[in-house]
């Protein structure tokens, strides 16, 4: 059975932008190991030549014409944000020039 190590939890939580406490990391590694263990029941199933299903609708080409529809005004766009400045959303600087 694959074990989810605490290191894996750390790497993945970084990818998922989640900050975890030491305690959470340990607990999650344990819980997730048991769930992944369960999921590995599919490991030996033969899926050769079987297509992947990403959606269960048969329709294709559901597109819109290139027509402008009304947008928010600035106030509506910003009203749920806790941090705004002169009509912009304001965030602490993360990485410059990227």
């Amino acid at each position: 059975m694959t074990k989810i190590s605490t290191d894996t939890v750390k790497v993945i939580s970084k990818l998922a932008k989640l900050k975890l406490t030491e305690e959470q990391i340990n607990k999650f590694a344990l819980d997730l190991s048991s769930i992944v263990g369960q999921m590995e029941e599919i490991k030996n199933l033969d899926v050769k030549n079987i297509a992947e299903t990403a959606r269960v609708i048969d329709e294709e080409n559901i597109l819109r014409e290139d027509i402008i529809t009304p947008s928010f005004n600035q106030e509506q766009a910003l009203k749920n944000s806790k941090s705004i400045h002169n009509g912009y959303f304001l965030v602490p600087q993360i990485l410059k020039d990227d």
Partner: peptide, 13 residues
Amino acid sequence: SDETKKRIILGTY
């Protein structure tokens, strides 16, 4: 919540 964090981590994994 921890439940949601676990689900996100598992999905990301």
